[in-house]
Structure formats: structure tokens, C-alpha cells
Computed example of a mutant assay.
Amino acid sequence: MFDVGFSELVVVGLIALIVLGPKRLPEVARTAGRWMGQLRRFIADVKLDLDREIHAGELSELRKLKQELDSTRRLMQNTSGELIKGFAEINPDTAAPTIHSPEPPALPDTVSADAKPASGRRGKTRNKSRSAKKHDGTRKARSR
């Protein structure tokens, strides 16, 4: 953002020391640090709120798309069922089997950003090998 190097910071510090004096400079530095901290927290909160709103908008778009796809799937199933019935009425000798399509899996309403996959067998194997090393039947005698 600002291209401020070490030499510029030293010059600003010396000018502040001359203008404010050695007694007031630490107080002013603490106050400025608090203001900067509050400003950074405020900016982080605003960014987080914007990200949440954008994420909520994307989720609503995905829900609308899912509803449209479900209605299209139902329409296609109804149309294909009607075509099969019409074919069976025209040619009753060759009865066509009914086609049933499985229901698609339901999508979750909320998606967690920090969801982690299961660790699998790796942790179990590691724990077994550690326990096998501890209890392998050989013990060293302690000297007292």
C-alpha cells in the first residue's frame, strides 16, 4: 500500500520525538497502536460480512438451480411415462417395461467451509505399531 522503508520510519520517529518529547511519545504510540488495532479489526469484520453475503448469494443461486433441475427431471419422467403408455396403447402385444429412475441424493442446505475428510486407516495403523513397539515383550531392567 504505502512504500515506507526503514529509513523513513526512523525519520518519522525522530520528528515525533522532537515534537512530542520523550515523556509523551510512549503514550501517543500506545494510543496510535490501539487505533490501528481497532481499524484492522473493523476492516476484518467488514471483509467477513461481505464474504458471508457473497456466500449466501451463491447458495441461493444453487438452490434455485436445484429446483429448476428437479422440475425438469419430473417433467422428463412424466413425458417418458406418457410416451410409454401411448406406445403400449398402440401396440398392446409388446408391453414396454416401466422405467423408474432413482431419486437424486439431497443436497445439504448449508455447506461447511471447514469440513475435513475422515482420516481413514492411517491413524489406526500408526497407533497399532506404536503399541506393538511398547509391548513387544522385551523390557530393560531399571537400575536403582
Rank of each mutant, 00 (worst) to 15 (best):
V11Y: 04
V11L: 15
V12W: 00
V12N: 08
V12M: 06
G13Q: 11
L14T: 02
I15P: 00
I15C: 10
L17W: 04
P22E: 14
P22I: 08
R24N: 11
P26L: 04
V28S: 06
A32Q: 08
A32P: 03
G33C: 08
G33F: 11
G33Q: 12
G33R: 11
R34H: 14
R34F: 15
W35M: 15
Q38Y: 13
R40C: 01
R40S: 11
R41K: 02
I43P: 04
A44C: 03
K47W: 02
K47D: 14
L48F: 03
L48Q: 05
L48W: 02
L48C: 03
D49A: 14
D49H: 09
L50A: 12
D51P: 05
R52E: 07
I54L: 13
H55P: 01
A56R: 09
G57H: 11
E58I: 12
E58A: 12
E58K: 05
L59E: 08
S60Y: 00
L62G: 04
L62M: 08
R63H: 01
K64F: 00
L69T: 00
L69H: 09
S71V: 00
T72P: 00
R74D: 01
R74N: 08
Q77S: 05
Q77F: 02
T79L: 09
S80D: 06
E82F: 12
I84H: 07
I84K: 02
I84S: 06
I84G: 01
G86D: 10
I90D: 10
I90P: 05
N91H: 13
P92Q: 01
D93R: 14
T94S: 06
T94I: 11
P97T: 05
T98P: 06
T98K: 15
H100W: 03
P102F: 00
P102S: 09
P102N: 03
P102D: 13
E103Y: 06
P104I: 01
P104G: 10
L107I: 00
L107Y: 00
P108E: 03
P108Q: 03
T110G: 03
T110S: 14
T110I: 06
S112W: 03
A113D: 07
A113H: 08
A115I: 10
A115Q: 13
K116G: 01
K116F: 02
P117W: 01
A118Y: 04
A118N: 09
S119Y: 03
R121D: 11
R122D: 00
K124W: 04
K124N: 06
R126L: 10
R126N: 05
R126E: 12
N127E: 14
N127Q: 15
K128P: 01
S129F: 11
A132F: 02
A132G: 06
K134D: 05
K134G: 05
G137S: 02
G137I: 00
T138E: 10
K140N: 02
K140T: 15
